[in-house]
Amino acid sequence: MTADNCVQDVSFPECKSADVGKLSLQLNCNSDCVYILRAIVAVMAARAGLDKMRSNRVSIAVDELFANILAHAYGGKAGRVEFETCIDHSAQNGCELSFSFRDYAALGWLGSIEEAAACVTDVDDLCPGGLGLKLIYSVSDRCEHEVLSDGNRWRLIFHLNDEEHDSEGSDEHACAAYSHDEQGKGEF
């Protein structure tokens, strides 16, 4: 199966709905799905006009978040993950590139991302998942986590500067009005 087969691209310039520019897919959680996610991140990074370094950093954050869901929420076993990404030109803080994951793991993660990310990297005592959270924290502008009755919802947000989302390669039509319920959401 190729990445293209898994991507539901609903980016139609003439469409006025809230789904404009949103890419979404449903995954059966497995480690090889990181390549599908990276392909999607590459598409969105190009639409957003990100340079190579920032694109790689966004890929790292998305990869790490998915790996954490795979390894810690589902314990390495198969599980359902819903993934969505969009560029929101009407976000409160300006234009944003966002990625959201919804898992259905029985275990809701109750730790503090900020604490995990802030711990000093000790080579002799690296804790599982700690390094990934540190990377997510260092490259994303915001990471939100919400414990649901039947799983978790995570959202990664990257602010786009004017140069990026106005660049030649960026896709203004990829903008989508993204609304969400802020209640119960953790944020760092």
């Binding site: 370094m53 950093r57 790292i60 540190k134």
Partner: peptide
């Protein structure tokens, strides 16, 4: 490569 070196730096492991 630059991409990989950057990740080591972000993890603060480039000097380790």
């Amino acid at each position: 490569r630059d991409n990989v070196r950057d990740v080591f730096a972000l993890a603060k492991l480039d000097t380790v």
